Amino acid sequence: MARESLRVAVMAAVQVLGDAGVPSAQVDAELLAAHLLGIERTRLGLTPLVEGEWVERYREVISQRARRIPLQYLTGQAHLGSVTVEVGPGVFIPRMETEVLLAWAVQSLAQIQAPVVVDLCSGSGVIALAIAVARPDATVYAVERSAGALAWARRNADRHRAGGGTPIHIRGGDFTDERLLTDLDGVADLVTANPPYVPEGTKVEPEVADHDPHEAVFAGADGLDAIKPLISVAAGLLKPGGYLAIEHDDTHGDSVPALLSARRILADVTEHHDLAGRPRFVTAQRVRLQR
C-alpha cells in the first residue's frame, strides 16, 4: 500500500470533525494523529508521509471522534498540571477549567511544610496526584464514592507509585459518611473538591451527556446538591488556618460564595475565574484560633 501525505490526512480529518460539530476539530485531529504515531503533536511536521494502513486506522479513530466519543477515551489519557492520568468509561474526564484551581491549591501550600491534603469527589484522582507531584512531602488523601471512578483512581495511584511518586491514600465511600473521614477531622491544611455541580436539565455537549457519568456531572435542580453538604464536611476536615477550594458551575458565582460566607468558621471567601473568564471556583480559609 502506497505511502500518503500526513498533512492531507489531517486536513481531511479536520473537515470530518468540523462537519460533526466537534468544536476543537483542528486540535483533536492533530492530537489523534500524534497519538497514533506515538509522537508529540509539535513533531507532526517532521513526519510528511505515513503508510496507507496507518491512514485507515486514523480514519477509523476520527470517525469515532466524529460520533462525539471523547478525545480522552480514544487516547486513554487526560492531563492536569504536570500529571497524566488514564481515563475511560466510568470516570469523569478532567477539564482545562480545573487548571486554575490546581495552581491556586499548590500556591496555598507554599509556606506549609509536610501538608495534609484531602481531595473530595476525586474521580480519576487527578487533582490529588497533581498536588502530590507538586508537593512530594505532602500526605494526600483522595475520596471517591463511585465504584467505576474509584477503579480508575486506584489504577492511576498505582501507576504514580510505580513510577517513583509519593503514594497517595485512596478512600472509597461517600464523603457524607461520618465514619469515612473521622480520623482526618481538623488535620487538613487544604481541602479541594471538584464535585458534580451542573443543574439537572442543563444542555451539555454530547461528550458529557453521553459519556461522563451522570452522577459526576449533575447535582439536582440548582446544581448544589453535592456542594451544600460538602462545605460542612470540608470545614470539619480543616485545621485552623487551613484552606478550601471548591469548583462550581459558572452560574454559581454568587450562590456558592454566599454558602461559604454563611459559615462563621470560614473566612476570606474569594471567588475565582477560569481561563475563559467565567466564575469557576471559590476559596476560603478556616478561621484561626484566638490566642
Results as ranks from 00 to 15, higher is better:
Trp152Pro: 00
Trp152Phe: 10
Trp152Gly: 03
Ala153Gly: 08
Ala153Pro: 01
Ala153Trp: 01
Arg154Glu: 13
Arg154Ile: 00
Arg154Leu: 00
Arg154Gly: 03
Arg155Leu: 06
Arg155Thr: 05
Asn156Pro: 00
Asn156Ser: 06
Ala157His: 02
Ala157Gln: 08
Ala157Pro: 02
Ala157Tyr: 05
Ala157Gly: 07
Ala157Ser: 11
Asp158Ser: 12
Asp158His: 10
Asp158Arg: 12
Asp158Leu: 12
Asp158Gln: 13
Arg159Thr: 09
Arg159Ser: 13
Arg159Glu: 08
Arg159Val: 03
His160Met: 04
His160Gln: 06
His160Ile: 00
His160Ser: 04
His160Val: 00
His160Lys: 05
Arg161Ser: 14
Arg161Met: 05
Arg161Cys: 08
Ala162Asp: 09
Ala162His: 06
Ala162Ile: 03
Gly163Trp: 09
Gly163Phe: 09
Gly163Pro: 03
Gly164Ala: 10
Gly164Leu: 12
Gly164Glu: 13
Gly164Asn: 11
Gly165Pro: 02
Gly165Thr: 01
Gly165Ala: 07
Gly165Gln: 09
Thr166Ser: 15
Pro167Leu: 10
Pro167Tyr: 09
Pro167Gln: 13
Pro167Thr: 14
Pro167Ser: 13
Pro167Asn: 13
Pro167His: 11
Ile168Leu: 15
Ile168Trp: 09
Ile168Glu: 03
His169Ile: 12
His169Met: 08
His169Ser: 14
His169Trp: 09
His169Gly: 01
His169Arg: 15
Ile170Lys: 00
Ile170Trp: 11
Ile170Met: 14
Arg171Gln: 12
Arg171Met: 12
Gly172Tyr: 08
Gly172Val: 07
Gly172Thr: 08
Gly172Ala: 12
Gly173Lys: 10
Gly173Tyr: 11
Asp174Pro: 05
Asp174Cys: 07
Asp174Ile: 02
Phe175Ile: 10
Phe175Gly: 00
Phe175Tyr: 14
Thr176Phe: 07
Thr176Ala: 11
Thr176Trp: 10
Thr176His: 07
Thr176Ser: 08
Thr176Met: 09
Thr176Asp: 05
Asp177Ala: 12
Glu178Gly: 04
Glu178Cys: 04
Glu178Pro: 01
Glu178Leu: 08
Arg179Leu: 02
Leu180Gln: 07
Leu180Lys: 07
Leu180Thr: 01
Leu181Tyr: 09
Leu181Val: 02
Leu181Glu: 05
Leu181His: 07
Leu181Arg: 05
Leu181Ser: 04
Thr182Cys: 05
Thr182Asp: 11
Thr182Met: 12
Thr182Arg: 15
Asp183Met: 02
Asp183Glu: 15
Asp183Cys: 02
Asp183Tyr: 04
Leu184Pro: 10
Leu184Asp: 13
Leu184Met: 11
Leu184Thr: 11
Leu184Gly: 12
Asp185Trp: 14
Asp185Gln: 13
Gly186Tyr: 04
Gly186Thr: 02
Val187Ile: 14
Val187Asp: 00
Ala188Arg: 02
Ala188Pro: 01
Ala188Ser: 04
Asp189Arg: 04
Asp189Pro: 00
Asp189Val: 01
